[in-house]
Amino acid sequence: MVEINLEFSGGLELLFGDVKQHKVQVPAKDGAIQVLISDLLVWIRGNLLKERPEMFLKGDSVRPGILVLINDCDWELCGRLASPVEDGDTVVFISTLHGG
């Protein structure tokens, strides 16, 4: 079980009851020691996502146009879905904006 700070922005918060910041406890998969981002996505889908899951997830990853940041760092730099999350980590899901 790890305690994670989750943040949703760029309009994604609308899918989570219009709440941007969530402190959550996420269990590791059976038999696993670590919690991976892929586990976190499954957990979010089952426990936090209030509506229109297709606006947040696509396949086993996030929808195109969503940037995932682990402790202020692009998840591409830390292994995407295979990146482990630890106690106290902050994971941000941000939808890119296009307005001007």
Partner: peptide
């Protein structure tokens, strides 16, 4: 950053 365009951009 965004190889695939988003759907339903507001």
């Amino acid at each position: 950053m965004f190889p695939v365009p988003p759907v339903g951009a507001r």
